[in-house]
Design a protein around this nucleic acid. Structure first.
Lengths: 358, 358
DNA sequence: ACTCTACCTGAAAGCGCATTCAGAAAGCGC
DNA sequence: GCGCTTTCTGAATGCGCTTTCAGGTAGAGT
């Protein structure tokens, strides 16, 4: 495995699996006094094996605590069932929820999931795909917004294309589809538009937005949906009311603080993700402002915890787990055609107490 | 791979990796007009290869988008670097934080992580270990509280022992160490004791506790530490003031509701995990009670979000990511001795606004 | 009882790679 | 320029398993 790409290893110890050699199929066959082929067949049930022989094999396998070597099986041509999932950070509730959906489907289907966190390092994403390719994972799921960067997409394609040519399935979740693969996408733009509409209906006219990195497609879409809907209502969202921050709780906190420092004159703040909204909420509280009395706050995603905030957060509910489940289906259902399939899942505005009428 | 254990598959389509056969080392060697052995050596750098030959090989590999087959490598004896992590639910912030630590270390060391969620199904835990064993993962990490069940521990050992005999490393995180393997454990009992002391110092004398399943060792330890410290101070914690619930937000919500229904007469409620505390907090709010004015609330773990609650939660801060990191070190540092190593990481009481002096 | 057809079983090939072993080339002293 | 050692290269082996392929055995048909 070419792993050097992922950084300096500090574990130099070689951990070979041959301390005591593993029990092999041959051991089982010998113990059961049958041929290797028969042992294999008895264990896999691919062909009928005389009952007494099969039982002898099963008994021997049990007694020796035999477990087939998945590598040998894979090499010998058996389909091995493992999925690779690449996300930015498992500990982000947004990805965690999607991963949950993935894991559920995987568990129900005897699939092993290899989960990798890139910590938003594009290099790592590439490196992980390469590793997953080496593992001959049957499918790779790319979860999370990609970058709007042509060079980057090209580098990605250089890994993905050979993988697919080799028969690998690829699906992306919540990501721009410049990669021509199957994808399942939340309706970010529509969701943001619906949210904007709901906020307008509450009477708000002066808005501010806390965005994540503007290069992320998710940010672009949500911002566009929000802004355009305001524009249609004749409400302008000046660039000075848009603050960019990291896609994290602290990013939201910092962005909100920045906004407050600039002198907040909006009656409603929209954070493009719930995670950022959580940071923003705390920043507002720390500044002595009350939500929603002094300012309304809305997020996006509806990660589980936001309903337990005080006040509970108005947001756009996304079917996060379903996003993961659908992606798995897409990947394992296989794609006969040449066109990439796109599954769009709508969000739903959930108005809670963090926004009020003005 | 024997995967039947994990339930009914609904994906019947065979996804073989041979749609277009993968580029092999032999292809590269042929393209570079060198022998297979030379190509292997050039790519791995194990032995010196004449410069021009190496460059030809590298160029050919690049051109053909060659990726070694990790299965073949593993089978041929190369150590393959993959870790298996088994937890209850990735989307639980507690596990997510630990997983984050694991992933960070993995990423820095070129390790691939196979993450499995058991959804608290003991059968699945066993099945996953079996799969990981089949994959010849270099190490397996068991994250999360085990059950106090002898039969169950025995079944587990039946998987673990052969794995270790084969040279596999095992480490457990936050789990009773009836399994004689390396472990890293938060000081649950001590932490709960320290929390109890802090709450006593705030003047509280009537307590209630929201626990998770009493069979979980984590619950047992935290409850014991809490209760014993109260007892030392002459404060009794009657069983009627202890409510058991699921180890989830909803479990905490339900348990708190139950407690309220019984007629809460405590001035302070301790939820054995932050996740449960979050549910409890909402239940209290829904009942019209103010935290901390009407009742104080404390949790355990210090998952990231609790500081953003209103009021921020008093809790016992555990070094969650470090738990994961240490486990990885334990696993990959290897264990020369016969005794299993135990790493205990202390918690620290963090008093926030959810508890007040009475 | 004898042949023909199913049905099983076992020997052997091969999956893609790392690595050993023997041999070839190159470098050295004289 | 010859014989030596030192490097490097390539053919061949084996990792553990699945899967042909070629028997072999038993049962059916007459």
């Amino acid at each position: 495995m070419q792993t050097g790409k992922l950084g300096q290893a500090f574990f130099n110890r070689e951990l070979r699996m041959d301390a005591h050699p593993h029990v092999t199929l041959e051991d089982v066959a010998r113990a059961a006094e049958v041929s290797l082929a028969t042992a294999s067949r008895a264990l896999n049930g691919t062909t009928k094996v005389r009952t007494d022989l099969r039982e002898r094999v099963l008994a021997a396998a049990e007694k020796l605590a035999y477990t087939p070597n998945a590598h040998a099986q894979a090499l010998a041509g058996a389909s091995h069932r493992t999925v690779g999932v690449i996300c930015h950070d498992v500990s982000d509730p947004y990805f965690a929820a999607i991963a949950r959906g993935v894991m559920r489907v995987a568990g129900d289907n005897g699939l092993l999931v290899m989960l990798a966190s890139t910590f938003r390092d594009p290099q790592k994403e590439i490196a992980y795909i390469s590793m997953l390719r080496a593992q001959r994972a049957s499918a790779i799921l790319l979860v999370g917004s990609g970058f709007e960067d042509k060079a980057w997409e090209r580098a990605l394609a250089a890994e993905i294309d050979p993988y697919r040519r080799g028969g690998g399935q690829v699906a992306v979740v919540s990501r721009h589809r410049s990669l021509r693969v199957d994808s399942v996408q939340p309706e970010n733009k529509e969701g943001a538009a619906a949210l904007a509409k709901a906020l307008l209906e509450l009477g708000h006219r002066r808005f501010a937005v806390l965005t994540g990195p503007r290069a992320l497609t998710t940010v672009v879409d949500r911002l566009a949906g929000f802004r355009e809907t305001l524009a249609e209502a004749g409400v302008e969202l000046p660039e000075s009311a848009v603050v960019e921050g990291a896609f994290t709780r602290d990013g939201g906190h910092a962005a909100m603080s920045e906004l407050l420092a600039r002198g907040l004159d909006a009656t409603c703040v929209f954070a493009v993700t719930d995670v950022m909204a959580i940071g923003a909420l705390t920043a507002l509280r720390e500044s002595g402002r009350s939500v929603p009395d002094d300012v309304s706050l809305a997020g996006f995603d509806d990660i589980p915890v936001v309903r337990d905030l005080s006040p509970p957060l108005t947001t756009v509910k996304l079917p996060l787990e379903e996003l993961g489940e659908r992606a798995m289906e897409l990947a394992f259902r296989g794609n006969r055609g040449t066109r990439s399939r796109v599954l769009r899942l709508p969000g739903e505005v959930v108005v809670r107490a963090s926004t009020r009428e003005v």
